[in-house]
């Protein structure tokens, strides 16, 4: 194989031109999907984190099992289970519905753990000071604890969000026409690997700034802990 053959197989500009309209709709779907599943996961995680502040045994243990269970099951397994399994129970779910349910359960558990750690990182004195001025439990959470909690775990939240956006690529397995799915479609039409390389480049350009930002935040965090 000559170098020209290699270029033709992986980096053909002609193919990129042909495949771009398909890839573009895929990118839009990926962004749309992210805009759905990230808030869903954060919302679910917030719910779990708030529940974890309830000290009662009957809340604590089921919550821990819930979180660890959904952290133990790989997201793709969960997605397939919801998508391919639920119809057998008489529940038809669309691909996007299955993705929404799977991501809510999986990423919710991860966001939940991060936010819980954030809440626990706020000193007890903050809670006491707020309660001593007459704020209710909920107001204390809302105005005093959560803003600090979120700030304390911001790098982890961003890092998890990066993982969630990357994870939307598994929606291709249930034929949701996001970026990876579209790239594979284009590949099967053109018999050329270029569309997949192009998709990879798009992912990289999209997410590289986030990776850079995280790298800096993480280094600062580690330095701050010394």
């Amino acid at each position: 194989m000559t170098f020209d053959d290699f270029l033709l197989a992986f980096f053909s500009l002609e193919i990129v031109g042909q495949a771009w309209p398909i890839l573009w709709t895929g990118l839009q779907q990926t962004l749309l999907l992210s805009a759905i599943v990230v808030p869903l996961g954060v919302g679910g995680g917030m719910l779990l984190a708030l529940l974890s502040t309830v000290r009662h045994r009957l809340v604590r243990w089921p919550l821990m099992v819930w979180v660890d269970f959904f952290r133990a099951v790989p997201p793709l397994v969960l997605l397939i289970f919801v998508y391919a399994g639920l119809p057998f129970a008489g529940l038809e779910v669309s691909a996007i519905g299955a993705v929404a349910i799977g991501f809510f359960l999986n990423t919710g558990a991860y966001y939940g753990e991060i936010l819980r750690a954030g809440i626990e990182s706020v000193p007890a004195g903050q809670m006491e000071a707020a309660r001593s001025t007459g704020l209710t439990r909920w107001q204390t959470m809302r105005y005093v604890v959560l803003p600090q909690a979120v700030r304390n775990v911001l790098p982890d939240l961003i890092s998890n969000t990066l993982e969630v956006v990357k994870l939307t690529s598994i929606a291709s397995v249930v034929a949701l026409p996001e970026l990876l799915f579209q790239a594979r479609q284009a590949q099967s039409v053109t018999y050329n690997a270029t569309p997949i390389v192009a998709a990879a480049v798009v992912y990289f350009l999209l997410l590289w700034p986030v990776v850079r930002l995280l790298s800096r935040l993480e280094n600062r965090q580690l330095a701050g802990r010394r």
């Binding site: 992986f10 990066l162 690529s169 990876l180 594979r184 690997a193 997949i196 992912y203």
Partner: peptide
């Protein structure tokens, strides 16, 4: 860190044969 693992897997599996 930026590429989704599934994209890398697919790229290697379906792309390398082209080379």
């Amino acid at each position: 860190r930026a590429l989704p693992p599934l994209v890398i897997i697919v790229l290697l599996y379906f792309g390398l044969p082209a080379a």
